[in-house]
Write a protein that binds this DNA or RNA. Structure first.
Lengths: 197, 197, 197, 197
DNA sequence: AATGAATGAGACTTCATTCAT
DNA sequence: AATGAATGAAGTCTCATTCAT
């Protein structure tokens, strides 16, 4: 089952986690039996509990496995153009989240009852706000501090909320349009706010 | 049936729904046994299923029972003062949501797997956006249409999101502060945007 | 609900029994909830138990309601022609059973566990054998007694068994053909047997 | 798993099936709780559903387990003596059915509602008719074809019906006598029929 | 290391039956 | 006489988890 160092044939443990991620996202943690995880991962039922003694351990491992948000602000910032900078950041985030269907719903879902998840979620949200704030600051020098914070939070909300309001194929494009409008609104607000000072 | 004489003593059916609302909010739909609902409502287990054949019917009934958002924009709008108008609207919303712990988490949680809930949630979100938009429009005449839409959506997100990021007692105040900042940001943006046209 | 003396609108009690008869025949006694009986009869659930305190009482009442086998041998016998006489008897029986879907399956089904039913079934089978025997005897004088008995039983079996082997529309005709052949066989046997003595 | 050393101690799965067979025969499928099956088999309740996900699967497995009717006509036929040949066949069948209390009642009982059972029953009945027909044909050459068919069917009915009319110990002997009479009747009919041709 | 049989607690649900009205 | 709310026992089935191998 295991390959030399980073073989194509992912390890059983990894396949279990991926199966769990998909099923949890689809039906929620409680409604997903470990047997279905084993089935989807193509491993015997016993192996799931061999690697993860309790079902909740899967959640913990899933959170640990979340990819680090390694976007460097420098790579997306276009000095003097807040709107474009933010647009590039969002594109980057999109690519990065694509790999994890988990993020879009599971995290928000289970945050209420699993504190491991809640903490991860809060951490990630804070990091997201920070990232946006950095991009705005870098792209737009004279910004008033408090303005930047609010703008960052609002945009972070817009990004995060994608998952609940717009969940089905048909709504994705609509969600994108909405976010573009909101991004413009915020960017304009910042620019004008500065000019008005 | 269990009324004393003033009919104030809520009916068994109602007690069951309230128990379900609280327990679902606390632990989620799947993780809440109907037996615990019966227990909390103080009724025999069979009665829960007498009124609600399947467990999911409780969710449907809960959604049906959601109080109508009967806030009239006229009551909160102060002409010419967008920020204050919005503040008054939010205060109104707060009072109105207070009665339903359900709203703050359950709806968002179960929207993924229960389409009845998802639809209700979307309906409510649309209504919320609309309400905010109306208040902004009423308070601030020369507003450019598209600006208003984005502003309304962003604020609606901020209001709605309350539930996930800031869930525990200690965070409530913090959330309120954040929302006040965001509200100001949006109101300023609108005012300035108009001036800049 | 009740009409004067024998009005068209059958009494609630009768409607319940008919509903029970149909549902029991279809799904068996155990698998039929009294609630579905009430539903089919168009009466409130409570009324079923008002008339029949225990569910098993329905079975008893159903057995009591079985129409008496009031076929008079004289009416079907053609002296000297056993085969035709039996054919006419079977036609008569057919008409008589038509009214009771119950007979064709329920009785046999529940005989094992409900002695009321078993006794009724045995009574009816004995009466059937007797009837056939009488017809044969009347149509065919010199018959040897033991022969007649066997012939009667065999034909009774053929008649009774209709219900299990041939149950669906398509098989009914086939069943009729089979019975006609068996009837002829038996009639021939009797005739020849006599001649051979 | 529970084998001592000689593998004679039947497996848990087998014990469950045997328990189900007995209880179903006794009280019918619907009226038998899986818990009582577990109890009689001496296994925990969960194990019944581990092997047979749904209760109806027990019925399917029971039908699959039915012993094949491997009686070879050659072994019972005495050329030229139809009655004796048939008597020997019936004796053979008796011995073979002895092992399965199931056959005598359950199959007929549940055929109405479980098509798996109905199909098995029909298959077995056809096979029984065929077997009898073969024995008659082998023992009695000049037989007219249609006669043989009817005779075979009638005797098959007599054999099969044993289960309902004569169910209790006291009736068994009586049933045997009846069948002997019917067998003789049929055998005579065939012999005479041939002579009369 | 890995597996699948085994377990038992407990979930949802159905239902005959009772009873106040 | 008639009803439908109410009850609780019991049924089927699921599932996380353990364990011998």
């Amino acid at each position: 089952m295991r390959r030399g160092q980073d073989g194509e044939d992912t390890s059983a443990r990894e396949r279990i986690l991926t199966a769990a991620e998909n099923l949890f996202s689809e039906s929620g943690f409680e409604a997903t039996p470990t047997s279905r995880i084993a089935e989807l991962a193509g491993v015997p039922k016993g192996l799931v509990h061999y690697y993860f003694r309790r079902k909740a351990d899967l959640l913990v491992a899933l959170v640990d496995r979340l990819p680090d948000q390694d976007i460097r602000p420098e790579h997306v910032v276009l000095a003097g153009d807040v709107a474009t900078s933010l647009r590039r950041l969002l594109a980057e985030l999109d690519r990065w989240q694509e790999s994890s269907p988990l993020l879009r719903s599971l995290l928000w879902r289970e945050a209420d009852t699993h504190h491991v998840v809640r903490e991860a979620l809060q951490r990630r949200f804070r990091r997201l706000v920070e990232l946006i704030r950095e991009v705005i600051s870098a792209a737009y020098d004279p910004a008033v501090r408090s303005d930047v914070d609010s703008a960052a939070e609002l945009l972070a909300l817009a990004v995060s909320y994608q998952h609940s309001i717009a969940r089905h194929a048909s709504d994705v494009e609509q969600g994108r349009v909405r976010m573009e409008r909101e991004l413009s609104f915020i960017a304009d607000a910042l620019t004008l706010g500065a000019g008005a000072d």
